[in-house]
């Protein structure tokens, strides 16, 4: 039974001046300190008594964390403290990374998106994270500042389980980088919740696609699923099927079936595994069909 704290339990708020200071503090207090950006997950979990950290280390304002920059030669860099609304409102995000903009706008509420961040969504590694699928499919990587200095963590190998990632004590993710989008990229996020909007996802389907001469079908179409596996799930078979064979209603149905077969959902308070599996198929089919239409069919 949930006995939530009436307010927030006690902790100390730490405001380091540099990334190095932040990393050192987090490493010195491993297990009892956590980087704070938007706080929308942290505060909820601390109220519920799930997280019991003694220190929250505010990383907002540290090197590069507050910036969102699109460089036509390199791609997009989203600072770890950039609130979601700033991301989806960014004209280059809308233009070049439609799947991400779409996913961001389907997270919770406008107010919450003024605090919540994409990097926070990624670091919390919830299987239900709405924005993670787009970041994965768009080839995202994280800039991480650790006690031993800076490094890059590709998202493809970042998620280890629900809430579990490749991050180590002392790590501060400073930004998310998305490479330049392939020419003609289109994308979409389909979300099914209990309400029409604002709910956590029962299932989320991200699809991106672009014309690709190296593919037999002429198209490269990728799909990721949320809330159907211990980690955000990229279904490689979808890409393979729709690259190898001509994209038709039949191959889309085949790909959607592959998405259904690939996922391993659980029963929880939001939906049953059985329903989730069927929705993985139906919504994948819907999303793939729409992307195919957008690509010019």
């Amino acid at each position: 039974m949930l006995e939530a704290h009436p307010g927030l339990p006690e902790f100390d708020y730490i405001k380091p001046k540099t990334l190095a200071e932040a990393s050192r503090f987090l490493a010195d207090h491993a297990g009892e300190a956590r980087p704070l950006s938007g706080g929308t997950d942290i505060f909820v979990r601390m109220r519920d008594g799930v997280w019991k950290d003694k220190y929250l280390v505010d990383i907002k304002g540290l090197d590069g964390t507050d910036e969102i920059v699109y460089d036509p030669s390199k791609g997009l860099t989203i600072g770890a403290a950039v609130a979601m609304n700033r991301v989806s409102a960014h004209p280059d995000v809308k233009k070049h990374y439609a799947a991400l903009a779409d996913a961001v706008d389907k997270v919770a509420s406008y107010q919450l998106r003024n605090r919540a961040t994409i990097v926070g969504n990624i670091c919390n590694a919830s299987p239900a994270g709405d924005t993670i699928g787009a970041c994965l499919l768009l080839g995202g990587a994280l800039d991480v500042h650790g006690v031993d200095g800076a490094r890059t963590e590709p998202l493809a190998s970042f998620f280890e389980g629900p809430g579990s990632t490749a991050l180590k004590p002392g790590d501060v993710v400073t930004s998310l980088r998305l490479p330049l989008p392939p020419k003609g990229l289109v994308g979409r996020y389909y979300k099914l919740g209990r309400n029409k909007s604002s709910d956590l996802s029962i299932i989320g389907v991200t699809v991106v696609g672009f014309p690709d001469k190296r593919a037999a079908s002429g198209y490269r179409i990728k799909l990721a699923l949320a809330s159907v596996a211990p980690t955000p799930l990229v279904v490689a078979q979808v890409e393979e099927i729709l690259a190898a064979k001509p994209v038709t209603e039949q191959t889309i149905a085949e790909a959607a079936q592959a998405a259904m077969d690939a996922c391993t959902p659980i029963d929880d308070v939001r939906a049953s595994a059985r329903y989730r599996k069927m929705m993985a198929r139906n919504l994948s089919q819907k999303a793939l069909t729409e992307i195919w239409n957008q690509l010019g069919r």
């Binding site: 039974m1 949930l2 939530a4 909820v44 209990r194 309400n195 029409k196 909007s197 604002s198 709910d199 956590l200 308070v269 939001r270």
Partner: peptide
């Protein structure tokens, strides 16, 4: 035991419903 004693999992109609 109640499994959903919060707005996260006890949903009520919002503006879009």
């Amino acid at each position: 035991y109640m499994q959903n004693p919060s707005f996260v999992d006890y949903r009520i109609a919002t503006t879009t419903d």
